[in-house]
Write a protein that binds this DNA or RNA. Structure first.
Lengths: 99, 99
DNA sequence: TTGACAGGCAACCGTTTGGTTGCATATTAG
DNA sequence: CTAATATGCAACCAAACGGTTGCCTGTCAA
């Protein structure tokens, strides 16, 4: 998931889906200076990372943003590293004093 | 910053620093099956992304985790996409019904 | 039925990435 | 002083990445 978020184009796609849900591939392409195939690849990566869900309807494929995993991971990481905020400063002080 | 978090080795380094603050490069290397130089590169990337802060002491370089940017970005992204949770479902329903 | 439209698949390509080896520099211990 | 230790710097390499072009498939409309 981190890898999926690491690319600016993909973040732009997520932004676009956040602004306007249920877009087709072609819709998502318009405005971006990129080939349809490139966008398609990005969407595949986002889909694999479970950040985008799709529904096929006829010859179209509607794309939906799935904000849940972002929220989950974000919360986990915040909590994981929040604890260290004070600890780190204490450690720093201790180490410097032990010189 | 997303790019910095996109690599498993770097996330492992952050984990290590979360568990034990103020580690030297050599300390961070032990346990990982990687060259010291590789770890050094990863740390440079983390440092550039402001996820790790360093203090030089003698010939050693102590590494500290900086959890603040993670928390900031995470919060921004949660808020950004939280709004769409309900909207997305509504849109989906609407689009499917309009068939 | 046939043409136009939406999308999928695959090969190819330059650049970036993650990693290595080898050597140089700086600091501390004996 | 000298040797060992801790780190930095640079060149190099295979693999992955982001993107392209070209072609194929499936669906809708006239």
């Amino acid at each position: 998931m981190f890898r999926a978020l690491a690319d600016e184009s993909r973040r732009a796609l997520l932004d676009s889906l956040a602004a306007q849900s249920a877009q087709t591939l072609s819709e998502l392409c318009s405005g971006l200076s990129m080939t349809r195939q490139a966008v398609s690849k990005h969407l595949a990566i986002l889909e694999e990372a479970n950040l985008v869900a799709t529904v096929k309807r006829g010859r179209e494929k509607l794309h939906y943003l799935n904000p849940v995993p972002i929220a989950e991971i974000a919360n986990r990481w915040i909590r994981k590293f929040e604890r260290t905020r004070v600890d780190a400063l204490v450690d720093l002080k201790k180490r410097l004093e032990s010189e």
